[in-house]
Amino acid sequence: MQQRQTDQDLIIQILEGNTTAYAELVKRHQRFVFTLALRFAKNREDAEEIAQDCFVKAYRALGTFKQTSKFSTWLYTIVYTTSMSFLRKNRLDTLSLNDEENGIHLESQISPLNADLAEKRSTNAYLNQAIAMLLPDDATIIALFYMGEQSLEEIAQVLNMEANTVKVKLHRSRLRLKEKLVFLLKDEVKELL
């Protein structure tokens, strides 16, 4: 049985000239990178463009990757900076990382989910909708911690901040998410009645 190659092995192969090995690296990380980009872009087309741009940027900079951290952590840093640039370019109002109080909510920019009614009513769909209502930074921290399985230290590296700050931000993001989820589910109960 062939043993699964690590990210490290694939990077070495790419740097030695086997560029096709990059396809495997893309396949491994594309789902999370796309999900993370979707937290910023809010529509699939833009998210896919951001995700593709991130992978191309990562390929260009692969020679500078020091391999002192996980490849995923390094890649997510690229995703975060690219997504933030995308938001700035599209003149979307974003919240400063250090400003907790001046929240600008993105509800008005959220398009209703196009899924069918059954899916809409599923908890997962509501959770996605609630996350989409959060600020990009909050959504990113939640996505990195619960879906990207990144530690607080790794998230701190991605967002370029202290691990303790990330811990506080994660707690606040959870509270905000809970509020949004309760709000959405309350509406759902009313709808059913």
Partner: peptide, 16 residues
């Protein structure tokens, strides 16, 4: 328990 989003089928090909 959340599931990750899936990009389009041509995603990897476009990047490559």
């Amino acid at each position: 328990g959340m599931e990750l989003e899936e990009p389009s089928m041509s995603f990897t090909r476009n990047i490559m």
